[in-house]
Design a protein around this nucleic acid. Sequence first.
DNA 1: GCAAGGTC
Length: 628
Amino acid sequence: MKILCVAEKPSIAKSVAYTLGGGKVTVRNSSVKYVKNYDFTFEFPGMGRCSVTMTSVLGHLTEMTIDNNRYGWGKCLPINLFDSTIIVKENGNDSKKLMQNIANEARLSNQLMIWTDCDREGEHIGWEILNAASKTNPSLKLENVWRAQFSHLERSHIISAAKNPKQLDRYAIDAVCTRMELDLRAGFSFTRFLTDLFKTNFHEIKEERRLISYGGCQFPTLGFVVDRYMRVKEFVPEEFWYISIEVKKGNRKLPMSWSRPHLFDRLAAMLLYENSLDMAKDEAEIVHIISKPTSNFKPLPLTTVQLQKDCSKFFKLSAKETLDAAEKLYNQGFISYPRTETDRFDPKTDLKNLLSKQLESPQWGGYVQELLDGKLRSPRAGKHDDKAHPPIHPICYTDFTKLKSRNEQLVYQYVTKRFLACCSDDAKGVKSVVTAKWGLETFTASGLMVLESNYLNIYDYFRWTSTKELPEFTLGEKVKLLKADLVTGKTSPPTYMSEAELIALMDINGIGTDATIAEHIEKILAREYASKQNLGESRSKKAYILPTELGCALVEGFNQIGFDNLSLSKPFLRKQLEESLAKITAQQETKNNVLDRFIELYRQAFVLSNQKQAILVQSYRHIQRRNA
DNA sequence: GCAAGGTC
Protein backbone atom coordinates (compact mmCIF):
# COMPACT_ATOMS: atom_id res chain seq x y z
CA MET A 1 0.00 0.00 0.00
CA LYS A 2 1.18 3.50 -0.78
CA ILE A 3 0.00 6.54 1.13
CA LEU A 4 0.51 10.15 0.06
CA CYS A 5 0.72 12.73 2.84
CA VAL A 6 0.60 16.46 2.14
CA ALA A 7 1.28 19.23 4.66
CA GLU A 8 0.57 22.96 4.48
CA LYS A 9 4.24 23.95 4.57
CA PRO A 10 7.64 22.31 4.12
CA SER A 11 8.66 22.55 7.79
CA ILE A 12 5.70 20.42 8.86
CA ALA A 13 6.28 17.87 6.09
CA LYS A 14 9.89 17.44 7.15
CA SER A 15 9.13 17.17 10.84
CA VAL A 16 6.22 14.74 10.44
CA ALA A 17 8.15 12.63 7.93
CA TYR A 18 11.09 12.16 10.30
CA THR A 19 8.77 11.41 13.20
CA LEU A 20 6.71 8.80 11.35
CA GLY A 21 9.70 7.39 9.46
CA GLY A 22 11.65 6.92 12.66
CA GLY A 23 14.62 8.65 11.08
CA LYS A 24 14.76 6.32 8.08
CA VAL A 25 13.74 8.78 5.41
CA THR A 26 14.96 9.43 1.89
CA VAL A 27 14.57 12.87 0.39
CA ARG A 28 13.76 13.85 -3.19
CA ASN A 29 13.64 17.39 -4.52
CA SER A 30 10.49 18.69 -6.14
CA SER A 31 10.48 21.26 -8.90
CA VAL A 32 9.75 23.95 -6.31
CA LYS A 33 12.47 25.41 -4.14
CA TYR A 34 11.85 24.66 -0.42
CA VAL A 35 9.44 21.80 -1.17
CA LYS A 36 10.79 18.27 -0.84
CA ASN A 37 9.28 14.80 -1.12
CA TYR A 38 10.10 12.45 1.75
CA ASP A 39 9.84 8.66 1.37
CA PHE A 40 9.61 6.29 4.32
CA THR A 41 7.46 3.49 5.69
CA PHE A 42 4.86 3.58 8.44
CA GLU A 43 2.36 1.11 9.81
CA PHE A 44 -1.14 2.50 9.50
CA PRO A 45 -3.81 0.60 11.49
CA GLY A 46 -5.30 -2.23 9.42
CA MET A 47 -3.07 -1.43 6.46
CA GLY A 48 0.15 -3.10 7.43
CA ARG A 49 3.45 -1.45 6.66
CA CYS A 50 2.85 1.14 3.96
CA SER A 51 5.27 3.03 1.79
CA VAL A 52 4.63 6.68 2.43
CA THR A 53 5.49 9.84 0.54
CA MET A 54 5.20 13.07 2.46
CA THR A 55 5.27 16.39 0.67
CA SER A 56 3.80 19.83 1.15
CA VAL A 57 2.30 22.86 -0.50
CA LEU A 58 3.05 26.49 0.38
CA GLY A 59 -0.26 27.67 1.75
CA HIS A 60 -3.20 28.02 -0.59
CA LEU A 61 -2.86 26.48 -4.04
CA THR A 62 -5.62 28.50 -5.64
CA GLU A 63 -7.22 31.90 -5.55
CA MET A 64 -10.47 33.26 -6.89
CA THR A 65 -10.46 35.84 -9.63
CA ILE A 66 -12.61 37.11 -12.47
CA ASP A 67 -12.28 36.59 -16.22
CA ASN A 68 -10.17 39.54 -17.30
CA ASN A 69 -11.34 39.39 -20.89
CA ARG A 70 -14.90 39.99 -19.88
CA TYR A 71 -14.65 41.65 -16.49
CA GLY A 72 -11.31 43.39 -16.67
CA TRP A 73 -10.83 46.93 -15.37
CA GLY A 74 -12.72 49.24 -17.72
CA LYS A 75 -14.41 46.40 -19.56
CA CYS A 76 -17.48 46.32 -17.36
CA LEU A 77 -19.18 48.48 -14.80
CA PRO A 78 -17.81 47.79 -11.34
CA ILE A 79 -21.29 46.83 -10.18
CA ASN A 80 -21.27 43.91 -12.60
CA LEU A 81 -18.61 42.34 -10.42
CA PHE A 82 -21.36 41.42 -7.95
CA ASP A 83 -22.72 38.81 -10.34
CA SER A 84 -19.77 38.05 -12.58
CA THR A 85 -18.66 34.46 -12.90
CA ILE A 86 -15.74 33.58 -10.66
CA ILE A 87 -12.72 31.69 -11.82
CA VAL A 88 -10.52 29.61 -9.58
CA LYS A 89 -6.93 29.69 -10.76
CA GLU A 90 -3.63 28.57 -9.35
CA ASN A 91 -2.10 30.98 -6.91
CA GLY A 92 1.18 32.01 -8.50
CA ASN A 93 3.75 30.05 -10.45
CA ASP A 94 4.77 27.63 -7.75
CA SER A 95 1.21 26.41 -7.23
CA LYS A 96 1.05 24.98 -10.72
CA LYS A 97 4.21 22.99 -10.08
CA LEU A 98 3.00 21.95 -6.63
CA MET A 99 -0.28 20.68 -8.06
CA GLN A 100 1.70 18.73 -10.63
CA ASN A 101 3.90 17.28 -7.92
CA ILE A 102 0.85 16.14 -5.96
CA ALA A 103 -0.78 14.71 -9.08
CA ASN A 104 2.38 12.75 -9.90
CA GLU A 105 2.64 11.30 -6.42
CA ALA A 106 -1.09 10.59 -6.16
CA ARG A 107 -1.22 8.56 -9.36
CA LEU A 108 0.10 5.43 -7.70
CA SER A 109 -1.17 6.10 -4.19
CA ASN A 110 -3.99 4.18 -2.55
CA GLN A 111 -4.77 6.86 -0.04
CA LEU A 112 -4.30 10.57 0.56
CA MET A 113 -3.72 11.98 4.03
CA ILE A 114 -4.03 15.74 4.59
CA TRP A 115 -1.62 17.27 7.13
CA THR A 116 -2.57 20.95 6.88
CA ASP A 117 -3.02 23.16 9.95
CA CYS A 118 -6.17 22.39 11.90
CA ASP A 119 -7.98 25.63 11.21
CA ARG A 120 -10.57 26.86 8.73
CA GLU A 121 -8.04 27.82 6.07
CA GLY A 122 -6.27 24.50 6.61
CA GLU A 123 -9.44 22.61 5.72
CA HIS A 124 -9.68 24.59 2.51
CA ILE A 125 -6.04 24.00 1.63
CA GLY A 126 -6.70 20.30 2.23
CA TRP A 127 -9.53 20.48 -0.26
CA GLU A 128 -7.25 22.15 -2.81
CA ILE A 129 -4.75 19.35 -2.30
CA LEU A 130 -7.48 16.76 -2.80
CA ASN A 131 -8.52 18.42 -6.06
CA ALA A 132 -4.95 18.32 -7.33
CA ALA A 133 -4.59 14.66 -6.32
CA SER A 134 -7.87 13.53 -7.83
CA LYS A 135 -6.74 14.74 -11.27
CA THR A 136 -4.66 11.57 -11.60
CA ASN A 137 -6.43 9.48 -9.01
CA PRO A 138 -10.20 9.93 -9.33
CA SER A 139 -10.89 7.43 -6.57
CA LEU A 140 -9.83 10.07 -4.05
CA LYS A 141 -12.89 11.90 -2.78
CA LEU A 142 -13.93 14.21 0.02
CA GLU A 143 -15.64 11.27 1.72
CA ASN A 144 -12.66 8.94 1.80
CA VAL A 145 -9.61 11.17 2.13
CA TRP A 146 -7.83 11.02 5.50
CA ARG A 147 -7.31 14.15 7.54
CA ALA A 148 -4.72 14.14 10.31
CA GLN A 149 -5.72 16.18 13.31
CA PHE A 150 -2.75 17.61 15.16
CA SER A 151 -1.91 20.79 17.02
CA HIS A 152 1.82 20.47 17.61
CA LEU A 153 4.76 18.38 16.51
CA GLU A 154 5.48 16.38 19.62
CA ARG A 155 6.22 12.75 18.68
CA SER A 156 3.43 10.79 20.37
CA HIS A 157 0.87 13.37 19.32
CA ILE A 158 1.90 13.08 15.66
CA ILE A 159 1.88 9.29 15.71
CA SER A 160 -1.56 9.29 17.29
CA ALA A 161 -2.76 11.76 14.64
CA ALA A 162 -1.46 9.46 11.90
CA LYS A 163 -3.31 6.49 13.37
CA ASN A 164 -6.62 8.27 13.99
CA PRO A 165 -7.53 10.07 10.79
CA LYS A 166 -10.65 12.22 10.59
CA GLN A 167 -12.44 13.63 7.56
CA LEU A 168 -12.09 16.99 5.88
CA ASP A 169 -14.74 19.38 7.13
CA ARG A 170 -16.79 20.34 4.08
CA TYR A 171 -18.58 23.09 5.99
CA ALA A 172 -15.35 24.79 6.96
CA ILE A 173 -14.38 24.60 3.29
CA ASP A 174 -17.71 26.24 2.37
CA ALA A 175 -17.07 29.02 4.87
CA VAL A 176 -13.68 29.79 3.34
CA CYS A 177 -15.10 29.80 -0.19
CA THR A 178 -17.74 32.26 0.97
CA ARG A 179 -15.17 34.61 2.44
CA MET A 180 -13.01 34.41 -0.67
CA GLU A 181 -15.88 35.25 -3.01
CA LEU A 182 -17.21 38.15 -0.96
CA ASP A 183 -13.80 39.71 -0.43
CA LEU A 184 -13.14 39.46 -4.15
CA ARG A 185 -16.44 40.96 -5.32
CA ALA A 186 -16.56 43.78 -2.78
CA GLY A 187 -12.83 44.49 -2.99
CA PHE A 188 -12.60 44.68 -6.76
CA SER A 189 -15.82 46.64 -7.31
CA PHE A 190 -15.18 49.30 -4.69
CA THR A 191 -11.49 49.58 -5.53
CA ARG A 192 -12.27 50.29 -9.18
CA PHE A 193 -15.07 52.69 -8.28
CA LEU A 194 -12.96 54.67 -5.82
CA THR A 195 -9.83 54.74 -7.94
CA ASP A 196 -11.69 55.93 -11.02
CA LEU A 197 -13.74 58.44 -9.05
CA PHE A 198 -10.69 60.05 -7.47
CA LYS A 199 -8.74 59.91 -10.70
CA THR A 200 -11.37 61.90 -12.59
CA ASN A 201 -11.73 64.46 -9.84
CA PHE A 202 -8.21 64.96 -8.55
CA HIS A 203 -5.26 65.67 -10.81
CA GLU A 204 -2.56 64.65 -8.41
CA ILE A 205 -4.11 61.22 -7.93
CA LYS A 206 -4.27 60.70 -11.66
CA GLU A 207 -0.69 61.90 -12.11
CA GLU A 208 0.67 59.69 -9.36
CA ARG A 209 -1.43 56.73 -10.62
CA ARG A 210 -2.62 56.28 -7.09
CA LEU A 211 -4.69 53.27 -6.27
CA ILE A 212 -7.58 53.91 -3.90
CA SER A 213 -8.32 50.42 -2.70
CA TYR A 214 -11.18 49.14 -0.63
CA GLY A 215 -10.99 45.95 1.35
CA GLY A 216 -13.23 44.53 4.03
CA CYS A 217 -10.27 44.55 6.42
CA GLN A 218 -8.27 47.58 5.33
CA PHE A 219 -11.19 49.99 5.66
CA PRO A 220 -12.21 49.13 9.21
CA THR A 221 -8.50 49.27 10.12
CA LEU A 222 -8.32 52.76 8.68
CA GLY A 223 -11.63 53.57 10.37
CA PHE A 224 -10.11 52.91 13.81
CA VAL A 225 -7.19 55.23 13.05
CA VAL A 226 -9.37 58.05 11.75
CA ASP A 227 -11.88 57.68 14.54
CA ARG A 228 -9.21 58.14 17.18
CA TYR A 229 -7.61 61.02 15.29
CA MET A 230 -10.92 62.86 15.14
CA ARG A 231 -11.54 62.31 18.83
CA VAL A 232 -8.17 63.86 19.60
CA LYS A 233 -8.74 66.76 17.21
CA GLU A 234 -12.25 67.51 18.33
CA PHE A 235 -11.43 67.15 21.97
CA VAL A 236 -12.49 70.08 24.11
CA PRO A 237 -10.87 70.17 27.53
CA GLU A 238 -13.29 70.44 30.40
CA GLU A 239 -12.56 72.05 33.70
CA PHE A 240 -13.17 69.99 36.80
CA TRP A 241 -12.81 70.50 40.55
CA TYR A 242 -11.75 68.30 43.42
CA ILE A 243 -10.68 68.58 47.05
CA SER A 244 -7.09 67.83 47.83
CA ILE A 245 -5.87 67.37 51.40
CA GLU A 246 -2.62 66.64 53.16
CA VAL A 247 -2.55 65.28 56.71
CA LYS A 248 0.21 65.52 59.29
CA LYS A 249 1.50 62.46 61.13
CA GLY A 250 4.54 62.99 63.27
CA ASN A 251 6.84 64.85 60.96
CA ARG A 252 5.42 63.27 57.82
CA LYS A 253 3.05 64.83 55.35
CA LEU A 254 0.63 62.44 53.74
CA PRO A 255 -1.39 63.59 50.72
CA MET A 256 -4.77 61.88 50.50
CA SER A 257 -7.10 61.70 47.57
CA TRP A 258 -10.79 62.41 47.51
CA SER A 259 -13.07 59.40 47.20
CA ARG A 260 -15.47 61.19 44.88
CA PRO A 261 -14.83 61.37 41.15
CA HIS A 262 -13.84 64.75 39.78
CA LEU A 263 -16.75 67.18 39.71
CA PHE A 264 -17.51 69.26 36.66
CA ASP A 265 -19.76 71.59 38.61
CA ARG A 266 -17.71 74.19 40.41
CA LEU A 267 -20.55 75.28 42.67
CA ALA A 268 -21.26 71.75 43.86
CA ALA A 269 -17.58 71.18 44.63
CA MET A 270 -17.42 74.50 46.45
CA LEU A 271 -20.44 73.60 48.62
CA LEU A 272 -18.93 70.27 49.63
CA TYR A 273 -15.62 71.94 50.40
CA GLU A 274 -17.11 74.71 52.51
CA ASN A 275 -19.39 72.31 54.28
CA SER A 276 -16.42 70.24 55.43
CA LEU A 277 -14.43 73.31 56.33
CA ASP A 278 -17.28 74.58 58.52
CA MET A 279 -17.82 71.22 60.18
CA ALA A 280 -14.26 70.07 60.77
CA LYS A 281 -11.95 73.04 60.37
CA ASP A 282 -8.46 71.57 60.04
CA GLU A 283 -9.08 68.18 61.59
CA ALA A 284 -9.84 64.81 60.04
CA GLU A 285 -10.55 61.46 61.63
CA ILE A 286 -9.09 58.11 60.65
CA VAL A 287 -12.13 55.92 60.05
CA HIS A 288 -10.76 52.85 58.37
CA ILE A 289 -7.42 51.07 58.15
CA ILE A 290 -6.95 47.96 56.14
CA SER A 291 -3.98 45.83 55.16
CA LYS A 292 -4.61 42.98 52.81
CA PRO A 293 -2.59 40.62 50.66
CA THR A 294 -2.59 41.50 47.00
CA SER A 295 -1.20 39.89 43.87
CA ASN A 296 0.16 41.03 40.59
CA PHE A 297 -0.94 38.28 38.23
CA LYS A 298 1.52 36.60 35.94
CA PRO A 299 0.67 36.94 32.25
CA LEU A 300 -1.50 34.56 30.25
CA PRO A 301 0.11 32.11 27.83
CA LEU A 302 1.18 33.93 24.70
CA THR A 303 -0.95 34.48 21.58
CA THR A 304 0.17 36.06 18.31
CA VAL A 305 -1.76 39.23 18.93
CA GLN A 306 -0.33 39.62 22.43
CA LEU A 307 3.18 39.02 21.10
CA GLN A 308 2.71 41.76 18.53
CA LYS A 309 1.24 44.20 21.03
CA ASP A 310 4.03 43.64 23.53
CA CYS A 311 6.86 43.81 21.01
CA SER A 312 5.42 47.06 19.76
CA LYS A 313 5.20 48.44 23.28
CA PHE A 314 8.48 47.13 24.71
CA PHE A 315 10.78 47.13 21.67
CA LYS A 316 8.96 49.42 19.20
CA LEU A 317 8.83 46.66 16.61
CA SER A 318 6.03 46.85 14.07
CA ALA A 319 3.56 43.98 13.97
CA LYS A 320 5.10 42.84 10.71
CA GLU A 321 8.65 42.91 12.03
CA THR A 322 7.58 40.88 15.05
CA LEU A 323 5.78 38.26 12.99
CA ASP A 324 8.67 38.01 10.51
CA ALA A 325 11.14 37.45 13.34
CA ALA A 326 8.86 34.90 15.03
CA GLU A 327 8.44 33.07 11.74
CA LYS A 328 12.21 32.79 11.34
CA LEU A 329 12.59 31.50 14.90
CA TYR A 330 9.87 28.94 14.22
CA ASN A 331 11.54 27.76 11.02
CA GLN A 332 14.77 27.22 12.92
CA GLY A 333 12.86 25.13 15.45
CA PHE A 334 13.46 27.51 18.38
CA ILE A 335 9.86 28.43 19.14
CA SER A 336 6.45 26.88 18.51
CA TYR A 337 4.12 27.95 15.70
CA PRO A 338 3.81 31.73 15.97
CA ARG A 339 0.27 32.13 14.65
CA THR A 340 -2.09 31.08 17.38
CA GLU A 341 -5.11 32.38 19.22
CA THR A 342 -4.75 29.91 22.07
CA ASP A 343 -3.99 31.33 25.51
CA ARG A 344 -4.11 28.12 27.54
CA PHE A 345 -1.74 25.19 27.61
CA ASP A 346 -3.08 21.69 27.12
CA PRO A 347 -2.92 20.19 30.64
CA LYS A 348 -0.89 17.35 29.14
CA THR A 349 1.90 19.70 28.08
CA ASP A 350 5.22 18.56 29.50
CA LEU A 351 6.22 21.88 31.03
CA LYS A 352 9.17 20.42 32.93
CA ASN A 353 10.66 19.09 29.74
CA LEU A 354 10.25 22.43 27.96
CA LEU A 355 11.74 24.24 30.94
CA SER A 356 14.72 21.93 31.29
CA LYS A 357 15.76 22.84 27.74
CA GLN A 358 16.43 26.34 29.06
CA LEU A 359 18.70 25.23 31.92
CA GLU A 360 21.86 25.92 29.96
CA SER A 361 21.04 29.59 29.47
CA PRO A 362 23.48 31.88 31.29
CA GLN A 363 20.71 34.50 31.46
CA TRP A 364 17.86 32.48 32.95
CA GLY A 365 19.21 28.98 33.61
CA GLY A 366 19.37 29.67 37.35
CA TYR A 367 15.78 30.87 37.38
CA VAL A 368 14.67 27.74 35.53
CA GLN A 369 16.51 25.57 38.06
CA GLU A 370 14.52 27.20 40.85
CA LEU A 371 11.28 26.49 38.98
CA LEU A 372 12.24 22.84 38.53
CA ASP A 373 13.28 22.63 42.19
CA GLY A 374 9.73 23.32 43.31
CA LYS A 375 8.72 26.84 42.35
CA LEU A 376 6.96 25.67 39.19
CA ARG A 377 3.26 26.65 39.05
CA SER A 378 0.63 25.78 36.46
CA PRO A 379 0.20 28.46 33.83
CA ARG A 380 -3.04 30.43 33.92
CA ALA A 381 -5.68 29.22 31.50
CA GLY A 382 -7.20 31.87 29.25
CA LYS A 383 -10.52 31.49 27.50
CA HIS A 384 -9.30 31.07 23.93
CA ASP A 385 -8.43 27.84 22.19
CA ASP A 386 -8.18 27.72 18.41
CA LYS A 387 -7.88 23.93 18.65
CA ALA A 388 -5.01 24.12 16.18
CA HIS A 389 -1.94 25.44 17.94
CA PRO A 390 -0.68 25.80 21.52
CA PRO A 391 0.34 29.18 22.97
CA ILE A 392 3.67 30.42 21.63
CA HIS A 393 6.51 28.97 23.70
CA PRO A 394 10.19 28.14 23.29
CA ILE A 395 10.87 24.65 21.89
CA CYS A 396 14.57 24.48 22.58
CA TYR A 397 17.35 26.62 23.91
CA THR A 398 19.45 28.79 21.68
CA ASP A 399 22.06 31.35 22.60
CA PHE A 400 19.98 34.29 21.48
CA THR A 401 22.97 36.62 21.38
CA LYS A 402 24.14 34.62 18.35
CA LEU A 403 20.87 35.00 16.42
CA LYS A 404 21.14 36.81 13.12
CA SER A 405 18.97 39.84 13.64
CA ARG A 406 18.26 42.07 16.58
CA ASN A 407 14.54 41.47 16.11
CA GLU A 408 14.99 37.72 16.39
CA GLN A 409 17.04 38.20 19.56
CA LEU A 410 14.35 40.35 21.11
CA VAL A 411 11.49 38.08 20.13
CA TYR A 412 13.23 34.90 21.29
CA GLN A 413 14.05 36.45 24.65
CA TYR A 414 10.54 37.75 24.99
CA VAL A 415 8.86 34.45 24.10
CA THR A 416 11.08 32.56 26.53
CA LYS A 417 10.74 34.99 29.41
CA ARG A 418 6.99 35.05 28.87
CA PHE A 419 6.91 31.26 29.06
CA LEU A 420 9.02 31.22 32.23
CA ALA A 421 6.70 33.85 33.70
CA CYS A 422 3.69 31.67 32.86
CA CYS A 423 5.28 28.79 34.79
CA SER A 424 6.04 30.99 37.81
CA ASP A 425 4.00 32.24 40.74
CA ASP A 426 2.18 35.56 40.77
CA ALA A 427 4.00 38.44 42.44
CA LYS A 428 2.77 38.87 46.01
CA GLY A 429 2.47 41.91 48.21
CA VAL A 430 0.47 43.71 50.85
CA LYS A 431 -1.73 46.64 50.06
CA SER A 432 -2.66 49.07 52.83
CA VAL A 433 -5.42 51.61 52.57
CA VAL A 434 -6.17 54.24 55.18
CA THR A 435 -9.39 56.23 55.04
CA ALA A 436 -9.94 59.58 56.72
CA LYS A 437 -13.09 61.59 57.08
CA TRP A 438 -12.99 65.37 56.92
CA GLY A 439 -16.45 66.69 57.63
CA LEU A 440 -18.70 64.56 55.46
CA GLU A 441 -16.07 63.85 52.82
CA THR A 442 -13.80 60.82 52.76
CA PHE A 443 -10.22 60.61 51.57
CA THR A 444 -7.86 57.69 51.12
CA ALA A 445 -4.16 57.01 50.86
CA SER A 446 -2.73 53.66 49.89
CA GLY A 447 0.60 51.94 50.03
CA LEU A 448 2.04 48.80 48.54
CA MET A 449 4.72 46.52 49.90
CA VAL A 450 6.03 43.95 47.47
CA LEU A 451 6.92 40.75 49.34
CA GLU A 452 7.78 38.34 46.52
CA SER A 453 8.48 39.44 42.96
CA ASN A 454 8.31 35.87 41.63
CA TYR A 455 7.55 36.02 37.90
CA LEU A 456 8.67 39.65 37.73
CA ASN A 457 12.21 38.52 38.49
CA ILE A 458 12.37 37.13 34.97
CA TYR A 459 9.61 39.04 33.18
CA ASP A 460 11.32 42.37 33.65
CA TYR A 461 9.46 44.43 31.06
CA PHE A 462 7.64 46.52 33.63
CA ARG A 463 7.81 47.33 37.31
CA TRP A 464 5.70 46.63 40.33
CA THR A 465 7.45 48.31 43.20
CA SER A 466 6.79 49.13 46.82
CA THR A 467 5.64 52.61 47.63
CA LYS A 468 6.76 54.53 50.67
CA GLU A 469 5.25 52.87 53.71
CA LEU A 470 2.14 54.49 55.16
CA PRO A 471 2.53 56.00 58.63
CA GLU A 472 0.96 53.97 61.43
CA PHE A 473 -2.43 55.36 62.31
CA THR A 474 -4.92 54.10 64.87
CA LEU A 475 -8.61 53.84 64.26
CA GLY A 476 -10.47 56.94 65.41
CA GLU A 477 -7.28 58.98 65.55
CA LYS A 478 -7.68 62.69 64.91
CA VAL A 479 -5.16 64.14 62.51
CA LYS A 480 -4.36 67.72 61.60
CA LEU A 481 -4.67 68.91 58.03
CA LEU A 482 -1.67 70.75 56.66
CA LYS A 483 -3.61 71.58 53.56
CA ALA A 484 -7.19 71.41 52.30
CA ASP A 485 -7.70 72.99 48.93
CA LEU A 486 -10.34 73.14 46.28
CA VAL A 487 -8.29 72.39 43.20
CA THR A 488 -9.12 72.72 39.55
CA GLY A 489 -7.81 70.71 36.60
CA LYS A 490 -8.54 70.06 32.98
CA THR A 491 -9.45 66.82 31.27
CA SER A 492 -6.77 65.76 28.83
CA PRO A 493 -7.33 64.49 25.29
CA PRO A 494 -6.95 60.83 24.35
CA THR A 495 -3.64 59.93 22.70
CA TYR A 496 -3.33 59.14 19.02
CA MET A 497 -3.50 55.50 18.00
CA SER A 498 -0.44 53.42 18.82
CA GLU A 499 0.19 50.26 16.83
CA ALA A 500 -0.35 48.16 19.95
CA GLU A 501 -3.79 49.66 20.45
CA LEU A 502 -4.69 49.23 16.81
CA ILE A 503 -3.75 45.55 16.91
CA ALA A 504 -5.90 45.13 20.01
CA LEU A 505 -8.89 46.82 18.37
CA MET A 506 -8.57 44.72 15.23
CA ASP A 507 -8.34 41.58 17.31
CA ILE A 508 -11.38 42.37 19.44
CA ASN A 509 -13.43 43.24 16.37
CA GLY A 510 -12.30 40.25 14.31
CA ILE A 511 -10.61 42.33 11.62
CA GLY A 512 -8.08 40.05 9.90
CA THR A 513 -6.47 36.99 11.44
CA ASP A 514 -3.41 36.60 13.60
CA ALA A 515 -1.46 36.04 10.39
CA THR A 516 -2.81 39.07 8.53
CA ILE A 517 -3.36 41.86 11.06
CA ALA A 518 0.18 43.08 10.45
CA GLU A 519 -0.41 43.10 6.68
CA HIS A 520 -3.54 45.21 6.90
CA ILE A 521 -1.69 47.83 8.90
CA GLU A 522 1.12 47.81 6.34
CA LYS A 523 -1.46 48.15 3.59
CA ILE A 524 -3.11 51.32 4.88
CA LEU A 525 0.39 52.77 5.25
CA ALA A 526 1.38 51.69 1.73
CA ARG A 527 -1.81 53.17 0.27
CA GLU A 528 -0.98 56.42 2.05
CA TYR A 529 -4.23 56.39 3.97
CA ALA A 530 -2.16 56.70 7.13
CA SER A 531 1.43 57.25 8.21
CA LYS A 532 3.59 56.45 11.19
CA GLN A 533 4.86 59.39 13.19
CA ASN A 534 7.02 59.81 16.23
CA LEU A 535 5.35 62.22 18.60
CA GLY A 536 5.99 63.38 22.12
CA GLU A 537 8.88 64.85 24.06
CA SER A 538 12.31 63.83 22.86
CA ARG A 539 12.91 61.28 25.61
CA SER A 540 9.48 59.72 25.61
CA LYS A 541 8.89 59.74 21.87
CA LYS A 542 6.31 57.20 20.84
CA ALA A 543 5.24 55.98 17.42
CA TYR A 544 1.65 56.67 16.46
CA ILE A 545 -0.39 55.92 13.38
CA LEU A 546 -2.11 59.01 12.04
CA PRO A 547 -4.45 59.24 9.06
CA THR A 548 -3.50 61.29 6.00
CA GLU A 549 -5.90 63.76 4.38
CA LEU A 550 -6.96 61.06 1.98
CA GLY A 551 -7.54 58.56 4.78
CA CYS A 552 -9.69 61.04 6.68
CA ALA A 553 -11.61 61.98 3.56
CA LEU A 554 -12.47 58.37 2.74
CA VAL A 555 -13.67 57.50 6.21
CA GLU A 556 -15.52 60.78 6.74
CA GLY A 557 -17.06 60.49 3.29
CA PHE A 558 -18.32 56.98 3.90
CA ASN A 559 -19.60 58.02 7.30
CA GLN A 560 -21.54 60.89 5.73
CA ILE A 561 -23.09 58.67 3.09
CA GLY A 562 -24.77 57.03 6.02
CA PHE A 563 -25.32 53.42 5.11
CA ASP A 564 -28.24 51.95 6.90
CA ASN A 565 -26.47 49.49 9.13
CA LEU A 566 -23.49 48.53 7.06
CA SER A 567 -21.02 51.38 7.34
CA LEU A 568 -18.01 50.33 5.32
CA SER A 569 -15.37 51.95 7.47
CA LYS A 570 -16.71 50.42 10.67
CA PRO A 571 -15.95 46.92 11.90
CA PHE A 572 -19.54 45.69 12.18
CA LEU A 573 -19.93 44.35 8.66
CA ARG A 574 -16.80 42.25 8.95
CA LYS A 575 -17.88 41.03 12.34
CA GLN A 576 -21.26 40.00 10.94
CA LEU A 577 -19.54 38.18 8.12
CA GLU A 578 -17.27 36.32 10.52
CA GLU A 579 -20.29 35.29 12.58
CA SER A 580 -22.09 34.02 9.51
CA LEU A 581 -19.00 32.07 8.44
CA ALA A 582 -18.94 30.44 11.85
CA LYS A 583 -22.59 29.48 11.34
CA ILE A 584 -21.74 27.83 8.03
CA THR A 585 -19.08 25.78 9.81
CA ALA A 586 -21.57 24.91 12.54
CA GLN A 587 -24.13 23.89 9.86
CA GLN A 588 -26.61 26.48 11.06
CA GLU A 589 -26.60 28.29 7.75
CA THR A 590 -25.74 27.35 4.20
CA LYS A 591 -23.01 28.82 2.07
CA ASN A 592 -25.51 29.99 -0.54
CA ASN A 593 -27.71 31.76 1.98
CA VAL A 594 -24.80 33.69 3.41
CA LEU A 595 -23.41 34.49 -0.02
CA ASP A 596 -26.74 35.80 -1.30
CA ARG A 597 -27.32 37.92 1.76
CA PHE A 598 -23.89 39.54 1.82
CA ILE A 599 -23.65 40.09 -1.93
CA GLU A 600 -26.96 41.92 -1.70
CA LEU A 601 -25.71 43.95 1.26
CA TYR A 602 -22.53 44.99 -0.56
CA ARG A 603 -24.46 45.69 -3.73
CA GLN A 604 -26.78 48.06 -1.90
CA ALA A 605 -23.82 49.77 -0.30
CA PHE A 606 -22.27 50.09 -3.73
CA VAL A 607 -25.39 51.60 -5.30
CA LEU A 608 -25.65 54.12 -2.50
CA SER A 609 -21.97 55.05 -2.74
CA ASN A 610 -22.42 55.56 -6.45
CA GLN A 611 -25.47 57.78 -6.01
CA LYS A 612 -23.72 59.82 -3.38
CA GLN A 613 -20.25 59.87 -4.92
CA ALA A 614 -20.25 63.66 -4.78
CA ILE A 615 -20.03 63.40 -1.00
CA LEU A 616 -16.79 61.41 -1.26
CA VAL A 617 -15.30 63.98 -3.64
CA GLN A 618 -16.46 66.89 -1.49
CA SER A 619 -15.07 65.26 1.60
CA TYR A 620 -11.54 65.19 0.16
CA ARG A 621 -11.82 68.71 -1.32
CA HIS A 622 -12.99 70.01 1.99
CA ILE A 623 -10.08 68.53 3.94
CA GLN A 624 -7.55 69.69 1.35
CA ARG A 625 -8.89 73.24 1.56
CA ARG A 626 -9.03 73.23 5.33
CA ASN A 627 -5.39 72.18 5.60
CA ALA A 628 -4.12 74.34 2.76
C1' DG B 1 -3.71 48.28 -11.31
C1' DC B 2 -8.18 45.72 -7.58
C1' DA B 3 -9.43 41.60 -1.74
C1' DA B 4 -7.98 38.44 2.07
C1' DG B 5 -5.92 34.28 3.13
C1' DG B 6 -2.19 30.89 3.27
C1' DT B 7 3.43 30.66 3.06
C1' DC B 8 9.12 31.37 1.47
